[in-house]
Design a binder for these strands. Sequence first.
DNA 1: ATTTTGAGAAACCAATTAGTTGCACATATA
DNA 2: TATATGTGCAACTAATTGGTTTCTCAAAAT
Lengths: 106, 106
Amino acid sequence: MRRDIFQAIADPTRRAIITLIALQAMTPNAIADNFNTTRQAVSKHLRILTECELVKQEQQGREIYYSLEIEKMKEIDKWLNQFRKIWEARFNQLDKVLSTMKKQKK
Amino acid sequence: MRRDIFQAIADPTRRAIITLIALQAMTPNAIADNFNTTRQAVSKHLRILTECELVKQEQQGREIYYSLEIEKMKEIDKWLNQFRKIWEARFNQLDKVLSTMKKQKK
DNA sequence: ATTTTGAGAAACCAATTAGTTGCACATATA
DNA sequence: TATATGTGCAACTAATTGGTTTCTCAAAAT
C-alpha cells in the first residue's frame, strides 16, 4: 500500500492535523482533543502521514511528539509549478490586453 | 456527496488528466487514449473534476471538449501559502531560534 | 435511412477508507 | 508494588472509491 502525499492531504481531518502541528509538535492525545473523534482515529491518520514522510515523531518518555516535515510540503508546491507557469502566462496576456486598452483610451 | 479539490487531485489518473488538458482542450476519447483504462472510467473522473469546478466543458457537435479551469488550481496554492511562510522562515534559519524557544517553554 | 461514432448514466463489483472497539505494552505516579 | 496514563496495533464495520459492463441518446457518416 504505497502512500502518496496527495492522498494524504485529501482527507480534511489530516489537513487540519497538518495545520495544527505545523508550528509546534503535539502528542496524539493533544491533537485528538481538537477533533470530534477518538485518539485511535487520529493515531491512524498520523501513521498515514508518517508513512509518506509528511510528519516526524519524537519520543519523550511515554509521550510521542509529532511535528510537520515542512520540506515534504514543497512537493505539492513543486507539482503546482507547472500550472503556476500557465496562470502567470495568462496574467501577462491580460496585462497586455489592459495596456492596449489604455493606449486606445488615449 | 460534496466534492473537494483536494480529493479531486488525490487520484493519480485525475492528476494526469489535469496535466493533459492544462494546455489544450480534449475530448473524453482522446484523453482515454492516453491511459490504460476505458472511456467510461475517464468520463467518471471528468465528472468529479467538473463537480468541483476544476474542469470546464465545451460542446462541439457530438464531441465535448474538456479543459482545465486554471483559476481553481490557485486554491491549492492558497492553502499552501500558510506553509510557504514557514519554510521561508526556515530558510532564514529562524527555525533554530523558534525550536530553542519551544524547548525553554517546556 | 441505416450504421457508426462520441458521450453520459445506471447497475454492479472488488478494493480501499475512515472510523470504532478492544487489546497489549511501556512509562509515569500513588 | 499497584494503578493510572499515553500510545500503537489488530479486528471489525459501514461507507466510499475506481473500475467495468450495459444501456440509451444524439450527431455524423455511409
